[in-house]
Design a protein around this nucleic acid. Structure first.
Length: 909
DNA sequence: ACCGCCGGGTGCC
DNA sequence: ACCGCCGGGTGCC
């Protein structure tokens, strides 16, 4: 049986390992989301705390310190009492049982998932037979009554808040906890989360500036920031420190967060997270690490000159010179194995550990290594797991960066013909596989070859893909056995703090590899805004992560030198005809909105207001953008009788043209837009969160009308009505189109090799632009949100191609593609219309202003004089300033008010 | 456990 | 003596 919990055998006091494994597994399984939904992932509220007693201490070996956190585990099959609740320390060693009177209501509460109960031992062990424990009850508000009633029925009562002083685990007195709970738990958005993490990494660049040269076998010269990463990674792998939050106190090693202590030194964490931004060369750095830091800082392969020159000195440490394994394809594998087994034992090496490693660790040895010093490693191979899409990239990069002729054996463990002999695998230098293959193998547990090898190093490429703790692939990854572990990821936090748990578990950062401790000590307190815990999290991440963004600076110098980025605003004057049309629409809009303003119903009619603004913005681009339905907008008169229909037409009005409206709750671009019966558009997750937290009392954040989940109408998607726009009608230009064409011709005249991005929020505008582009003989391609994956990839590849026949222009919708989208072929950007969301514009520019860009990037923003566009620009600037100043912490009321002000300004009201 | 509880021994002071 | 009191045995769930 494999030890998931892993450390049971480490406690010296633990006399019967087999028993403790079972125990550990009980702890483990009780914290896993299993058959019943669990609470510990969700924050919940603290119902209260009380003191209980732990009895039966003399029968168990688990020890606890003063203020140590303990876990409570139900034992429904206990032969003496089916209500039994056992108490275990952080390593899962049993300490005792909860006294039976109290165990009765606790069992009821735990079995019905009414609350999550957590224990802290206030005094540690004061006598041989029993001790007190402070119990904290956490749960959903709706279960509070049930919990209190049950406890009262059994004669128990929560301690009064005021008199409560004892049992203070760090940062967790009842008072503190209750007061924290009064602060509403506002979940961070993905963007806020990303920002706070980028900030977290920022201040720790300074001490990570030492460099290390790669081994000679690495052909490609490393850039300075890559040498820094290499130094740091090698140092992490060779470090001899206690893991974060562990301290030596007397003869004990104590975790200062949980106050748990053991005699056994906790295992070192060799590895971490390389979280550099895309394009900084994580792959190359990792290859350099593999080549340069084999055992004890020595390179994996010694080059020929070195071998000769120092052969006598190095005799005992040098690699097998007759090494012939080179199996890049499964077919070669078998022959390679034969060759190596005949040559394998030929060299005598005195350094047992090194020798064993060179020969390749054979079967996974039972984890007997205990002391940090006495371990003898037999591991040789590095296992790299990556998504299928980058598999070939790894092979290419090994090929490209490792000096030609080196006997590096890289085995691609992929395809039905893959060699499943774990002895063979453990003799490789590198084994490359995918998450799919790994978890497929893991499906037949007994026979998963990758799980039989003791790896020197396991690397999770794009490590953020391992996120769901219940997924087979996660279990497969966590169950690998390795000395050193690395996670490569540009975005270690995809959505929330929750995502980090798997990464901590993979790195075996005790005690966070067990979810209960991660939740209790980090996740819940941090999400509830506890500063102390956030500091702890920062310290934890800081210690194990290296992250540089393309804008990171090291000692005042940019990590990556990017070409310049220059932004120009080109003001466009409307033609007389356009101006007339614009002013007409504006007067009409002023009337409508003016009425709303005097009535105080701007927010109630927000969808209409937006539609009017969109209409004005469209006229600025091209009067032909006004689709037939857009003209119906201003009043409410001609709307269809059916409410559903009317709402759909409204939401379509706001979104169909591809405009980038934002959600009033998250202030970010709309995701999964829905419209309420009161005609306001939000992200579905945002508005659902409001409804969930306010229940029946839920009101629309914009107009305070009652809302509920059933009354949300989805945006049915853009049905391109494909009417007037397709070239049939007589082509008519616009001032802005003319301005663009003038620029494009100029650019082309100066240097035909320069490529441009033409960006708009209105996809219909992009379509319109196709006509003049064709007329002037430009070749172009297009990328917008409506395209499927296949055609996207094709469009990007075409555009990035440098051949003369490749398109020189890409029509790009502002929000198309993720952050990863790489359009470095372009060095000119034309922003056809301003967006409400400045971040969206920055992100868009970053698609070409990124690593790999060789030219200066010139951005031209077209802004129509005396129009909403100018107002939008101004508002954007204010917003940016405000965000920087206040961290976006404006109250909802303020936001509403400033929205109204914005609209009034724009409509000159 | 320097307790509580149980049950046997014991019985004026 | 159908009590009180004493002191030894005993002890999680």
């Amino acid at each position: 049986m494999r030890r998931r919990f892993g450390t049971a055998g480490l406690d010296l006091l633990d006399t019967d390992p087999s028993e403790s494994v079972t125990l550990s597994q009980a702890v483990q399984s009780s914290t896993e989301e299993g058959a019943r939904p669990d609470l510990d992932g969700e924050a919940g509220v603290l119902f209260g705390a009380m003191t209980g007693s732990v009895v039966g201490l003399r029968y168990y070996t688990g020890v606890v310190n003063k203020r140590e956190m303990v876990s409570l585990v139900r034992e429904p099959h206990n032969p003496y009492d089916r209500n039994a609740v056992m108490v275990a320390n952080v390593y899962g060693n049993q300490v005792g049982h909860i006294k039976k009177e109290l165990a009765a209501p606790m069992a009821y509460i735990m079995d019905n998932n009414l609350a999550k109960i957590e224990g802290v031992v206030p005094y540690g062990k004061t006598n041989k037979f029993s001790m007190s424990v402070t119990l904290f009850f956490w749960g959903e508000e709706e279960n509070r009554a049930a919990v209190t009633t049950k406890l009262n029925h059994c004669g128990f009562r929560f301690d009064p808040v005021k008199g409560f002083k004892s049992a203070k685990a760090p940062g967790s007195s009842l008072q503190e906890m209750l007061s924290k709970n009064l602060v509403a738990a506002v979940p961070l958005t993905a963007e806020q989360m990303k920002n706070s993490f980028d900030k977290m990494f920022d201040d720790l660049m300074a001490d990570k500036t030492r460099e290390m040269e790669a081994a000679d076998a690495v052909f490609t010269p490393l850039l300075p920031h890559q040498k820094q990463a290499l130094y740091w990674m090698a140092a992490r792998e060779n470090n001899d420190h206690l893991p974060p939050f562990w301290e030596q106190k007397g003869d004990l090693y104590v975790n200062v967060l949980t106050n748990f202590g053991v005699k056994q030194r906790p295992e070192r964490v060799l590895g971490g997270i390389l979280a550099d931004d895309m394009g900084l060369g994580k792959t190359l750095t990792t290859i350099a690490l593999i080549m340069s830091n084999f055992h004890d800082g020595r390179p994996l392969l010694l080059d020929k000159a070195d071998q000769k020159a120092s052969s006598s000195l190095l005799k005992r440490r040098r690699k097998d010179p007759i090494k012939t394994e080179k199996a890049a394809s499964p077919k070669k594998a078998r022959t390679a194995e034969k060759a190596s087994s005949s040559a394998g034992g030929a060299v005598l090496l005195e350094d047992a550990g090194f020798a064993a490693a060179l020969a390749g660790g054979s079967a996974k040895s039972k984890k007997t290594k205990s002391g940090a010093d006495s371990r003898i490693s037999t591991a040789r191979a590095t296992l790299i797991i990556c998504p299928l899409s980058v598999l070939s990239n790894w092979l290419d990069q090994f090929e490209q960066h490792v000096r030609f002729g080196e006997n590096l054996s890289v085995y691609l463990y992929y395809g039905t013909e893959r060699c499943r002999d774990h002895n063979f695998l453990s003799r490789q230098d590198v084994v490359l596989t995918t998450y799919n293959v790994l978890s497929a193998d893991y499906g037949n547990k007994e026979s998963s070859p990758l799980h039989k090898v003791s790896w020197l190093r396991v690397v999770l490429d794009e490590g953020h893909v391992v996120r769901n703790p219940n997924a087979q692939q996660t279990k497969a990854v966590l169950d690998l056995s390795s000395e050193r572990r690395w996670i490569l990821s540009g975005t270690p936090i995809q959505n929330s703090l929750k995502d980090l748990w798997v990464l901590m578990a993979f790195l075996k950062l005790k005690p966070f590899d067990v979810k209960e401790w991660w939740n209790r000590v980090i996740q819940r307190p941090v999400t509830q805004g506890d500063r102390e815990s956030l500091k702890n999290l920062q310290a934890l991440i800081k210690g194990i992560t290296l992250r540089r963004t393309k804008t990171s600076k090291v000692a005042g110098k940019s990590v990556v030198e990017l070409p310049q980025k220059k932004m120009f605003v080109q003001r466009v004057t409307l033609s007389e005809e356009e101006r007339q049309e614009y002013d007409l629409a504006k007067t009409e809009g002023q009337k409508v909105i003016g009425r709303y303003v005097t009535e105080g119903t701007v927010l109630t009619n927000y969808a209409d207001v937006l539609a009017i603004l969109v209409r004005l913005r469209q006229i600025c681009c091209h009067p032909g953008l006004l689709g037939s339905y857009a003209r119906v907008s201003s009043g409410d008169t001609s709307a269809p009788s059916d409410l559903q229909e009317r709402l759909i037409s409204k939401i379509r009005l706001v979104l169909s043209c591809g405009s980038d409206e934002e959600c009033a709750i998250c202030l970010d671009s709309l995701r999964q837009p829905v419209i309420t019966y009161c005609a306001h558009v939000f992200c579905r997750p945002c508005i659902c969160e409001v409804i969930r937290s306010e229940q029946e009392r839920a009101k629309c954040p914009l107009c305070r009308a009652h809302i509920n989940t059933k009354e949300l109408v989805e945006y049915p998607g853009d049905k391109e009505t494909g009417t007037s726009t397709s070239g049939k009608e007589k082509w008519r230009s616009s001032s802005k189109v003319d301005a663009l064409m003038g620029r494009l011709l100029q650019v082309h005249g100066e240097d035909p090799a320069v490529k441009s991005l033409v960006v708009s929020q209105f996809t219909r505008f992009l379509t319109l632009l196709e006509t003049p582009l064709r007329q002037h003989g430009f070749t172009f391609t297009r990328l917008d949100g409506s395209m499927n994956q296949r055609s996207r990839v094709k469009a990007i590849a075409e555009f990035q191609d440098s051949s003369p026949s490749s398109p020189s222009i890409m029509l790009l919708s502002l929000t198309a593609g993720g952050v990863g989208l790489n359009l470095t072929a372009a060095s000119r950007v034309f922003m056809m219309d301003p967006s409400w969301n400045p971040a969206a514009e920055d992100q868009c520019v970053d698609r070409c202003h990124r690593l790999g860009q060789t030219r200066d990037v010139i951005i031209t923003k077209f802004i129509v004089k005396n129009s909403v566009e100018e107002d939008m620009m101004r508002i954007q600037l204010n917003k940016k300033e405000l965000m920087e100043k206040t961290f976006g912490s404006k109250s909802v009321q303020d936001q509403r008010q400033s929205r109204i002000e914005e609209i009034k300004t724009m409509m000159a009201l």
